Amino acid sequence: MLTRRHFLAATGGALALPVSRVWSASTLDLGGARIDTLSDGFLTLPGNFILGGMPETELQEIVSRYGLATDQLTPPCNVTLWRDGTNTVLFDVGSGPDFQPTAGKLAEAMEALDLSVDDVTHVVFTHGHPDHLWGLLDEFDEPIFANAEFAMGGAEFDYWTDPDTVNTIGEARASFAVGASRRLSVIGDSLRRLTDGEEVLPGLVARLTPGHTPGHMSFDMTAGSVPVTVVGDAIGNHHVGFERPGWASGSDQDKDLAASTRTALLDRLAADQVVLIGYHLPDGGIGRAERSGEGYRFLSGV
């Protein structure tokens, strides 16, 4: 049965699954498990951070169709919460207070669901960028999710904790490296390093999806009534990322590898009708990929 309710924010779309709206979050009932995407707010980015270098004429046609400006983009930030009756798992932890003033709102979203940080049993990171990692510590540099077990791709952890990364990542992202290293050093001794294909928990499998960052991971949920993949930033937006997945994007650290990863991932998600959850996709980020013309389109909501 399809159910839906609206509170503070409305959404739309065409996904034939039981999705409801809670505060600024979306909920998906998998039968025995529940997924909520919790809003951490949104980012304010210069348009060329994502769109720079793309074919201008074709790009303009796409962004105009989506009603986007090219000088500034404001992507949402969706933190995924998975509860199976035993485990309460967060995928990423948002920005915290130190990245952008429009983000770092995860605590408010959790409060709206009557969820305490002490309830979280596991935190699984897709990658180490600020909007995914910097909400890890409190003002005393202690982990906010004190009862949780932490996990991240091993290659991703190694990259951000390598002292040379700050010198090789480029000036624009040097602060990313400093911030990631500081935070990961706090939990490094206990953090689980994941490999491609490793089962994180029963019904939750890590998948290496590199390019956006060197060790970026997505996560397949296989135990519910429908297959679901948390894609993180492997698909970073609902417009050019879907319509032209092979285009290089300025938001990716290895642009060519990210485009190859994105194309292969969308091929699989569309062919297998997998529900996807994207960190920067609209309406809570829950939807499907459907083939359309030369690429795909994102179908969000119900």
Rank of each mutant, 00 (worst) to 15 (best):
Y66T: 12
Y66F: 15
G67P: 09
L68Y: 06
L68P: 04
L68H: 01
L68C: 11
A69S: 15
A69R: 15
D71S: 11
D71T: 12
Q72S: 10
Q72F: 09
Q72V: 15
L73T: 04
T74I: 11
T74G: 07
P75M: 03
P76E: 13
C77D: 06
N78C: 07
N78S: 05
N78G: 08
N78H: 03
V79L: 11
V79Y: 07
V79K: 04
V79T: 12
L81S: 01
L81Q: 03
L81P: 01
W82H: 13
W82G: 05
R83I: 02
R83F: 01
R83S: 07
D84L: 00
D84I: 01
G85Y: 01
T86L: 07
T86P: 00
N87A: 13
V89D: 07
V89C: 10
L90S: 04
F91S: 08
D92V: 03
D92Y: 02
V93I: 09
V93F: 05
V93T: 11
G94N: 07
G94D: 09
G96V: 02
P97Q: 05
P97F: 06
P97M: 04
D98F: 12
Q100P: 01
Q100M: 14
P101T: 13
P101H: 12
P101Y: 12
T102R: 05
A103R: 10
A103S: 15
G104S: 04
L106W: 04
L106I: 09
L106V: 11
A107M: 09
A107T: 05
A107F: 04
E108Q: 14
E108H: 10
E108I: 08
E108T: 08
M110L: 10
E111A: 15
E111S: 13
E111N: 13
E111P: 00
A112E: 10
S116D: 14
V117C: 11
V117N: 13
V117S: 11
D118L: 12
D119S: 10
D119L: 06
V120S: 03
H122P: 03
F125Q: 01
F125D: 00
H127S: 08
G128P: 03
G128H: 06
G128R: 03
G128W: 08
P130N: 05
P130L: 04
D131Y: 11
D131G: 00
D131V: 06
H132R: 03
H132M: 12
H132A: 11
L133W: 02
L133S: 02
W134R: 12
G135A: 09
D138H: 05
F140M: 13
E142P: 00
P143S: 08
P143F: 08
I144G: 08
F145D: 06
F145Y: 15
A146W: 05
A146N: 06
N147Q: 14
E149F: 03
A151S: 14
G153V: 02
G153M: 06
G153Y: 10
G154N: 08
A155K: 14
E156Y: 03
E156T: 06
D158E: 14
D158M: 07
Y159G: 00
Y159R: 02
Y159D: 06
W160E: 10
W160R: 10
T161K: 11
D162C: 07
P163Q: 09
D164P: 01
T165L: 11
T165E: 09
N167V: 01
T168M: 12
T168H: 14
I169V: 15
I169L: 07
I169K: 08
E171H: 14
E171Q: 15
A172C: 00
R173V: 02
R173I: 09
A174S: 12
A174W: 00
A174P: 00
S175E: 15
F176A: 07
